[in-house]
Nucleic acid binder design. Sequence first.
DNA 1: AAGTGGTCTAGACCACATT
DNA 2: ATGTGGTCTAGACCACTTT
Lengths: 229, 229
Amino acid sequence: MRISYRDVKAEILNRIRNNTWPLGSNLPSEIDLAKEFGCARATMNRAMRDLVDDGILERKRKAGTKVKQSPTRRAQFSIAVVRDEVEQAGAKYSYSLIERNVLPAPSWLCERIKMKIGEPVLHIKCMHYSGKHPYQYEDRWVNLDVVPAANDFDFEDIGPNEWLLQQVPFTDGELVFSAINAPEDIARFLKAPVDSALFSIERTTWLEDKSVTYAQLYFARDHKLTSRI
Amino acid sequence: MRISYRDVKAEILNRIRNNTWPLGSNLPSEIDLAKEFGCARATMNRAMRDLVDDGILERKRKAGTKVKQSPTRRAQFSIAVVRDEVEQAGAKYSYSLIERNVLPAPSWLCERIKMKIGEPVLHIKCMHYSGKHPYQYEDRWVNLDVVPAANDFDFEDIGPNEWLLQQVPFTDGELVFSAINAPEDIARFLKAPVDSALFSIERTTWLEDKSVTYAQLYFARDHKLTSRI
DNA sequence: AAGTGGTCTAGACCACATT
DNA sequence: ATGTGGTCTAGACCACTTT
């Protein structure tokens, strides 16, 4: 049977485990290893590239391939649309707009997303529910210069998260996870005690070089985010 | 110039953006697209596989390739060794053991990691510092059946996290992020007010089918975890 | 049965980093 | 200058799914 890149990966991992190639050590070159394994160079290449992607190996031209000193599998999880998140858990999703305003961008916002002070932004506060239970409180700012259509949308029935996805299919972004003591107003909406610990995600999104939106998401008490690694 | 898989990716993303291929729609087959783009099938294949990995496309044999309904870039970040985390931030790392005990596995632990009630486990509590400041409180359980060498190691100078990495180079695992109100003892070590919101990670690790360790990590107040997406 | 993606091969040339 | 990885090509066969 022919050698698959999966077989190659498995064998490389074995050799790291049994200390044939200790942490930090150098591996033979692609070409040599391909010969040894009896596969094409492309197959060996794919296996090794995969392992770089998995956080196990490091490669540099000329310098060669080595086992990372601290192999770290990369955590991977997708931040889905809230609706999907709730529905995948088997619950009924519902949404409710709290507040919608257009106003000039405050200066603190301009430090976070690339836009000029005073330019019009849409500010939205809303709630997401899982069945009857509060699921997430969302506080979002949308750059009207980049997404002018948001000016004409009322967000009464559809959340900004879902709506934006239609307008701007995908984007680059940054996620920041943290914990925060529930402020009074958010606590009320999430039906949580004031000052209880809430899991929070800040999400900044841009398209090319333009900032699209900045959102602070506060999850209901005891929410957990799980990730295979 | 020859067409690179990067060029192909970029063009595919463009066509999704400008609605040539709306969310949920089907793309032409690899072979047809390769012809249109003037590249080899392998190049088109790599581009499309990459986009699957990026969370933009879905592929199924015979059924073909389609744009995902909710494209989600996968968040990726590596959970590093605490020492590296601190040192990369330019601070001096230090470690301090709080408590080290060997005891029979309590039943709640056996529900989380695969081991039998009463089998010996090592329980460690320790602190990680960034300069003078508390950085992380760690509460860890190690399966002595899988890592018997832990029995003979005192963990006075080296944290279990770093030590385990040497013993068990890499592992599969699960991460759970959450927020918690600081209990009294942990608050004391982290120099945070009791009940202040702490960012917490639970980490479960296994090797093949054997559970290696379960750790609860509590970060200092206002700690943030950042991730490109 | 047929269409689509999944993968392997053998060869080639290029790009980069070190010497 | 040289060695190593990065990538493209053209062709082949396989594997899965749907018809």
